[in-house]
Design a protein around this nucleic acid. Sequence first.
DNA 1: CCGTATCCTGTTGGATACTG
DNA 2: CAGTATCCAACAGGATACGG
Lengths: 121, 121
Amino acid sequence: MSRFDHYDCSLGCPVEATLELIGGKWKGVVLYHLIDGTMRFNELHRAAGTVTQRVLTKALRELEAAGLVSRTVHPVVPPHVDYALTEKGRTLVPLLLAMRDWGLEHALPAPPSTLNENILA
Amino acid sequence: MSRFDHYDCSLGCPVEATLELIGGKWKGVVLYHLIDGTMRFNELHRAAGTVTQRVLTKALRELEAAGLVSRTVHPVVPPHVDYALTEKGRTLVPLLLAMRDWGLEHALPAPPSTLNENILA
DNA sequence: CCGTATCCTGTTGGATACTG
DNA sequence: CAGTATCCAACAGGATACGG
């Protein structure tokens, strides 16, 4: 009821729909890090940097609800929970890499330290 | 001061940086519609559907500040303002199309009305 | 280790009315 | 036509503390 109620845009909506699933402050980071494989909660927590547990949990639950991430609980002590991309989530990988590449090229100051292809410019 | 202060992620940030520029509820729609060419304020307003002028203006100003969209004022009466993708904005087109395609395939119920390639499944 | 429970703040987006 | 000015509600995100 909060998704595509209104809008009249007949073709632009899919962009919005995609953004709605992977948007938010941490989902992109989480998805990106999961490209490399399964990660535990604390691994993601550290990888993300400064996210709180509450917020990270919420992001993971939403990604799980969207069918992009799987959550596997190993009933041992201490608890062990694995997160991974689902098959659907893996279809996002090209998009995630494209976003990373675009970000590196256009969104970050990112000095081209090793390359000097700016000679062309 | 609200961008990359914290984070320790050494490679996932570009994804976040990209998302931060094109995120929000309407920027994706705006950018997507501008792919086809220059549009006036009211055209975008109608294309987006239910966005208010205040919110659309804010989104356009942010896209302009990010260097993704240009704003051209023709000093006539009644006012005439054109919005278009900048050269930097145009570098986003493949990403926008990829997001649209992914959204069509995975984020929308989108019944394949004309095609029947689901026979394969 | 992997969360949940409270509480709090800032920002996003919206409703409505008005203007050059 | 293309905005601005107010005002407001909702929510995302964060701080901190606690629990199985």
